[in-house]
Simulated scan of single mutants.
Amino acid sequence: MKVIKHSEDVLKTALMSKDKKLMKHYEKFGPKEQLLLNEAFRPDSVLFRPITLHSDSDWIASHPEPTQDFEQFYHDPSRTTPTPQKSFIYIQPIGSFGDATVSTDDYMKWLKDYCEAFYYGLTVRILGPLPVSHMGCAFRVNEYTRNLQLYAGDILKYLKKKKPRDAFCIVGVTMIDLYPSESWNFVFGQASLTE
């Protein structure tokens, strides 16, 4: 196993910018926002723990990506921000969640609470559950796992059409495996940053 833990200096470089426009944002942080940002620099933080890689096939090890600091994120042309007209996160449950002891409503309540805490200031609305058969998406049975898999591209197209006008974003949530193309075994999720 390998543990990835960044030093306080590396974290400060990544999270804090010397850009004057961003520094003005930092000065406007309320006590809760300041507390959350400072939590990243505490060595005993319960929110920002080291990342443990269990094998070479873990995503971070097998799919290296360039780093991105907050300033790069802030200036990214594809980054969008909520507005008063687009301030809701819609969550669309897709298919069965398959656990008789915990209902889909319980899972959605937990997810709603988490998203509203993480995306502070945005309101989450849970849409009615959607049977897979109503989506008209392509599917397959994985040759190795024998699990049903849904084609993620069709789900994105469906959600794009269903996205309400006041939505900052719409997110489909399912316990069914996804695949992004025939050549991939599976994918954890897929997103469109521009639609």
Rank of each mutant, 00 (worst) to 15 (best):
Y107F: 15
A138I: 01
H75K: 12
D9Y: 04
K24Y: 07
P93S: 12
K28I: 01
P180S: 11
E39L: 13
I51E: 11
L148I: 07
H134M: 08
D113Q: 14
Q149L: 08
E143K: 14
I4P: 00
K162I: 06
D76S: 13
V124G: 00
S78H: 08
K163G: 14
F70E: 06
I89Y: 05
P82F: 04
F168L: 09
E182S: 10
Y144F: 11
R42E: 06
E8P: 07
Y107A: 12
A100V: 05
S45W: 14
L159S: 12
P50R: 05
G95D: 11
D154A: 11
E65M: 02
I4R: 00
V102M: 05
A138Q: 14
D106C: 15
T194E: 03
I126T: 05
N147D: 15
E27W: 01
I126Q: 03
H134W: 06
V132W: 02
K20Y: 08
D19F: 03
L130V: 05
T101H: 04
F118Q: 14
F118M: 10
A152G: 14
K163I: 03
Y107E: 13
L11Y: 04
S87N: 15
P93E: 11
K18I: 01
P43D: 14
T13Y: 08
P84Q: 10
I51M: 04
I60L: 05
I170T: 12
D105W: 00
G98Y: 13
L15E: 13
L15D: 13
Q149V: 06
W59V: 10
D69H: 07
A138H: 09
F29I: 06
L111Y: 14
V173G: 01
M175T: 15
C169G: 10
I89W: 06
Q34N: 15
P77K: 10
L148M: 14
V124C: 03
T104N: 06
F186P: 00
I60K: 00
D9L: 07
K2P: 00
F41E: 02
E33V: 14
G172Q: 06
P66C: 02
L178Q: 11
